[in-house]
Design a protein around this nucleic acid. Structure first.
Lengths: 223, 223
DNA sequence: GAGTCTTGGTGACTATGTCACCAAACATTC
DNA sequence: GAATGTTTGGTGACATAGTCACCAAGACTC
């Protein structure tokens, strides 16, 4: 087993697989790469494989027939594209789009192998169902936020999360509006209000939180 | 095999199971009943079993911490509560609530049996993943509607669907507002507008479509 | 028939989304 | 480096949706 085949160990849920199962998974899967910005799956482009993300982030979003977009969830390294698998096993077209937010390395597992693994390994089943559970919980949360939470609260929350590592959040009003499923103008006005209060500073293509505690305080309203 | 054990045949996806699997499913499951209005599962009340609905309808809805409610989807006879199963296999608390909308008969399958069935039967796996797929597609649709569709369109659509069998829809403004995740006042005003246009008639606890074609026409805007 | 609960109505207000623009920053090209 | 196009953000006017604080009529209970 070379180091490239050690990827299974990066998945906490998969390290408990027994040795034959690990070998099956390694032998029958293939490492694939996607460039930043690539469309990994989308309507009319059903994925043939289940992906285990080794590195990078996939953003899953939906485009309404009105042309509006909203981010549904993200798949990070160490997680898998289970929802694509579910939908790949069914008739329906998958109505969401997966976009490589960074360069992405992933292990692609064909659906037949996926099926075999689900059949023969309890740890693998647990992994799959836990992954489903996380995604569905995420979706419930999105519904709650879109339907019932105030936009200023959601935006403050988003800014806090985006700025957890950096001082300066490199994003545009347009991108923020897709994150929250709203219009660009609404984001622009809300950011102006935050700026007026001295909570952030803005530049073209970036937002810099100055008073994170105030943003956090607003984000905590109904969370 | 008495007729009570023939329930598997009512599930199109399960009729393809082989005989030993059918027997396992029948022997290890139990028929349960819920009265209309009963809470079948909810936060802090994780279901121990997977349910196969033999008769009746389960309404699955979410209550926000702001006190607002929204209907997520319904489980009809012939379908199963897969999402509860997913969440039951994971740590998270299930944040949605399942309410018996009518009297409900169901077959309850313990999680250990569910796991065995997933392991040993491909048709059962297909059934489970197809059910997942349907639910997730439903959730995507809810997100799209809540985030991007106009309320008059959504209300017209809901009225058309509710009146497919009956002339007179027995519901309250409050219930309609929960269906769409909005406020009662908003529904009241929208229904007044429909009434003003001569599309519906209202009475306490009921809405009667008069001009379904107009409602349908509005409902078709962005669907 | 007096209370009480459910259901629905209403005005005033706030929040959010839409539309049609404009203008500055930036990138590209010659 | 001037001309040009693209991206990003700003703005006013307006439409739609949600909130709040009430009120009132029907229905149900005692």
């Amino acid at each position: 087993m070379s180091n490239i085949s050690a990827w299974i160990e990066r998945f906490p849920g998969l390290s408990r697989l027994d040795q034959p199962t690990k070998e099956l998974l390694l032998n029958q899967s293939q490492i694939v790469n996607f460039a930043k910005g690539a469309t990994i799956f989308g309507p009319g482009n059903s994925p043939e494989n289940m992906l285990f993300l080794l590195d990078g982030t996939v953003r899953v979003q939906q485009t309404s027939d009105t042309g509006h977009e909203i981010v549904l969830y993200r798949i990070e390294a160490g997680q898998s594209c289970v929802l694509t698998t579910a939908c790949l096993l069914s008739y329906d077209d998958y109505s969401a789009t997966g976009i490589a937010e960074t360069a992405v390395d992933a292990a692609a597992v064909p659906r037949a192998v996926f099926d075999t693994l689900v059949a023969q390994s309890k740890p693998f089943r647990d992994f799959v169902f836990a992954a489903f559970s996380k995604r569905i919980t995420d979706l419930f949360l999105v519904i709650d936020e879109v339907a019932f939470q105030r936009l200023d609260v959601r935006l403050a929350d988003k800014l806090i999360k985006l700025s957890s590592n950096t001082d300066r959040v490199a994003t545009t009003h347009q991108k923020l509006s897709i994150e929250l499923g709203t219009a660009r103008e609404v984001i622009s006005r809300q950011l102006q209000e935050f700026q007026r209060r001295g909570w952030i500073e803005q530049a073209r293509g970036s937002v810099t939180p100055i008073d994170k505690s105030q943003l956090q305080k607003l984000a905590n309203h109904n969370t």
